[in-house]
Write a protein that binds this DNA or RNA. Structure first.
Lengths: 242, 242
DNA sequence: CGCCTCTTTGATAAAAGTCAATCAGGGTGG
DNA sequence: CCACCCTGATTGACTTTTATCAAAGAGGCG
């Protein structure tokens, strides 16, 4: 587990955070959000490549991503790895550990990142008095369930080109909601990580990027993507984002 | 939505239910379980083939399966279906709807089934006073997240024979925990449904069953399975159940 | 500059899908 | 009661998709 540092008094808190439109505060009243300032008092910096938590670690907190990108991955006894998600600012990580208070996945930073610590015991205490808080976390967990089900749908029902198109549109949409360009962005993960996530090999991903570029759907140089024809990508993905 | 009927006073309640070892009461004190009797006052019978809920239905309750088997499935705008789970007695269904209080999947009975109704508003009220209840539902949701992640791992990382072996072992284990035979059971779903669930075609499933039978791993007649060599199946599945 | 990792691309092989024919059971109506 | 029909399952032939193996190119960093 990484080192936790108290949030300096003059720093941004939930009530003043730019992410409040998409993070935990989403849909909460201004007054309720100030309660979050009481709850979230620490942050953790996670350098690129370092774990926020690992399988087997005690889960005594959830984490709200403040900046950066992380991935979560399972690993079975044979060493086989499966990436289950790429997480952006405003998203919550760590809900895998709530079953037994032990994490069953790794969370690793894809770039230097910072997360806000949401201690479970204090969350429980506060939830007793603030019903909306409990409701909010239930929503967040349901969202993760639905996200994972969408993932199952993508892996179970789509072909490689559809999966990649849906993946790119999903990235685009989430980055747009953070205020970034929906068409031009940097992929923080390697071809191998994309492939693993989508149940494909890195070669297949590379070939698909080349083909999409040849067909004028996008431009790609290294990890820098420009989506040129969102309509065609949407048509290709078949489904409405994955 | 199906018709709800009050549980007759002389009928089994949570505190006297045989499923209390695996259902919501798991790990709760005897005293806390009696609180569940206050919470769960209705049941719904769902005939084979009928929906318990459908996409778009208002989600105002969770459901504990009392008897029977159900499947949950997503359906996108093109009509493409993806089965996301097969649910047995003692398992909870309906958590997909907690994000917006609207269901985003169908729940359909594979055989005549009965479920206990857990109204969300009463769950909330009770949770205010009974912290363990809140904790319990958080655990159940985390379990569903982890289950879905395992599913992603299976679809993303395993080959067809591994997926089917893992599927059968998973069935076996869950049926065993219900007190049924771990080696001899009836599949309540068609080849097509298994295939859809595992991201394969019904023909592939059929061929795999034939091959497993030829190799002495199991016997299969229609939907009646006998697992003959669990060790080999475990080795084949690679992972420790999916 | 040279090494190292990531990526691209090609040739080939393996896995799974598709199409099609047949078969088996279960239920229904004559 | 039996023939028939309908659905679900099996099996085969063939195609498509994607993985695997291999080689070479590009960029970044010490």
């Amino acid at each position: 587990m990484q080192k936790r540092t108290a949030i300096p008094p003059d720093s941004t808190r939930c009530s003043t955070c730019m992410l409040s439109e998409i993070c935990i505060p989403l849909g909460m009243s201004k007054k309720d959000v100030t309660v979050l300032d009481e709850l979230i008092k620490e942050r953790i910096r996670v350098p690129k490549g370092a774990p926020l938590f690992k399988i087997g670690d005690e889960a005594n907190a959830l984490f709200g991503i403040r900046s950066g990108t992380l991935k979560t991955q399972l690993q079975d006894s044979t060493g086989q790895v499966q990436i289950t998600g790429f997480l952006f600012p405003g998203e919550i990580i760590g809900m895998d550990g709530l079953l037994q208070n032990i994490h069953v996945s790794h969370a690793i930073a894809l770039e230097d990142s910072e997360v806000c610590v949401i201690p479970l015991d204090e969350l429980d205490t506060l939830s007793q008095h603030i019903p909306v808080l409990q409701l909010q976390f239930r929503r967040l967990m349901s969202k993760e369930i639905n996200r994972s089900h969408q993932m199952v749908m993508s892996l179970g029902g789509l072909r490689s080109e559809q999966r990649l198109a849906a993946f790119l549109l999903n990235m685009s949409q989430r980055l747009a909601s953070l205020g970034y360009s929906s068409t031009d962005f940097i992929l923080r993960m390697s071809r191998e990580e994309i492939g693993n996530y989508l149940g494909l090999t890195l070669e297949t991903i590379s070939r698909l990027f080349s083909r999409f570029a040849r067909d004028g759907l996008l431009r790609i140089r290294q990890r820098e993507v420009s989506l040129l024809d969102m309509t065609a990508l949407r048509a290709l993905s078949g489904t409405d984002c994955g």
